[in-house]
Amino acid sequence: MKNKTIDYILRATWQAISRMYNEEATKYGATMATGFTLLSIDKEEGTPSTALGPKMGMEPTSLTRILKSMEEKGLIIKKKNPNDGRGVLIYLTDQGKEKRALSKSTVIQFNESIKKHISDEKWENFIEVAETINKLIQDKEIFNPSENRENGIATTEKNKK
Rank of each mutant, 00 (worst) to 15 (best):
G74N: 07
T47F: 01
N144T: 11
W14Q: 09
G87A: 13
T155M: 11
E131R: 09
E147C: 09
M58Y: 11
K2Y: 15
G85W: 08
L10K: 02
K78G: 01
V88W: 05
P48K: 04
M70F: 00
E131P: 03
T93V: 13
T156Q: 04
K158I: 10
L75Y: 01
P48S: 09
I133G: 00
E98R: 15
K55G: 03
S119L: 07
R65D: 06
S146Y: 15
T156I: 08
G74Y: 02
T106N: 08
I114E: 10
V129N: 05
E24S: 04
R100L: 12
V129S: 07
V129Q: 06
N144E: 15
I76F: 00
P82D: 01
M70V: 02
I6M: 12
Q109K: 15
F36N: 11
I6Y: 10
R100V: 03
K80S: 06
M56T: 04
L52K: 00
M70H: 00
A101G: 14
T156N: 06
N134E: 13
P60K: 07
P48W: 01
N22I: 03
K78R: 12
G87T: 04
K122M: 12
Q109W: 14
I114S: 05
N151L: 14
L92N: 00
L136Q: 12
E45R: 11
K104W: 14
V107G: 02
L10R: 04
E141P: 03
S40W: 03
K27Q: 13
P48H: 03
R65I: 14
N81I: 03
V129A: 11
T13C: 10
T5H: 14
I114Y: 07
E141S: 10
S119C: 08
M20I: 08
T5G: 11
K99A: 15
I90C: 11
I108T: 12
K4W: 04
D120K: 11
I6L: 15
R19A: 10
K116D: 13
F143I: 12
T156M: 11
P145K: 07
K4Y: 10
Q15V: 12
N125D: 07
E98C: 12
S103V: 02
I66F: 07
S40G: 13
S103H: 01
L92M: 02
